[in-house]
């Protein structure tokens, strides 16, 4: 094993259920730092649930229960994210999530991207502006929107909205980025841009993405993890991703 591939997310004996339905059963898995891991498997088998466990977004779903431990290496230390002392807003800033369907807030493009910075507080106007520009550039959106930052974000196309949501997640420099079928609502062209974007983000983030599209998984991911019946069926390295050479 190479020295720089340290473990970013450590899941141990994870059980999860909604009301009476068990979704995850005794899942143990490691996710490596600065890698792109794809979570695959039949629908309704807990793939999106697994993502929501990494940033604790499932907690206000009535009847949902979890057992087991999840540690994420954040800010240079290993943190038990379900420890009572772990701050939820901090965690969600460090572990960004992009949803299946783009969900811009009803504000301007600029305000959408600046929003997480505003929530975190402590930055000057200029810093926020710079961060927004950087994030939009990272998300390949800057050229499209630099002249219309004040327009309502909902006026963008679907693919642009999804890149906006990625920029919004990136603006607080997350260490982990969770992507829940980020291209399933987009056409082929928009999908290709997002895929390239994901590959370019690997330098700075650990990316975990749910995908239905095995071809996409092969194009983008280096490692994969298959869930079925709440258990891990397979977990391994994808040999020679075709796209990475480009």
């Amino acid at each position: 094993m190479l020295a720089q591939t340290s473990i970013k997310i450590k899941v141990r004996n994870l059980f999860f259920s909604y009301a009476e339905t068990a979704v995850l059963k005794d899942l143990t898995v490691d996710i490596l730092d600065r890698s792109i891991t794809a979570v695959v498997g039949p629908s309704g088998r807990g793939k999106s649930t697994l993502l929501s466990i990494f940033n604790r977004l499932w907690e206000d779903i009535p009847g949902a229960r979890m057992k087991g431990s999840v540690h994420i290496h954040l800010d240079g230390t290993d943190r038990d994210i379900y420890h009572p002392a772990c701050s939820l807003p901090d965690l969600r800033r460090k572990v960004g999530l992009v949803f299946q369907i783009p969900n811009p807030l009803p504000m301007s493009i600029y305000k959408n991207v600046a929003f997480p910075r505003k929530l975190a507080g402590g930055s000057s106007k200029q810093q926020v502006m710079d961060a927004v520009e950087t994030a939009l550039k990272q998300a390949f959106l800057w050229e499209d929107v630099k002249d219309r930052l004040r327009e309502d974000a909902r006026s963008l196309s679907g693919g642009q909205q999804q890149r906006l949501c990625m920029a919004r997640a990136l603006v607080v420099n997350p260490e982990v980025l969770l992507l829940d079928e980020p291209t399933s609502s987009l056409d082929a062209e928009a999908t290709e841009i997002i895929e390239q974007l994901i590959l370019s983000l690997k330098e700075n983030c650990t990316i975990v993405m749910v995908s239905h599209d095995m071809a996409q998984v092969k194009r983008v991911a280096e490692r994969w993890l298959e869930l079925s019946e709440g258990k891990m069926m397979a977990n391994g390295r994808i040999s020679a991703p075709a796209c990475r050479a480009r």
């Binding site: 977004l57 969600r92 800033r93 949803f99 369907i101 929003f115 929530l119």
Partner: peptide, 16 residues
């Protein structure tokens, strides 16, 4: 609900 989930995922506290 989508707006609230979006805000949650970005780490907003209830007051925010």
């Amino acid at each position: 609900k989508a707006y609230l989930t979006a805000a949650d995922a970005l780490g907003a506290t209830p007051v925010q």
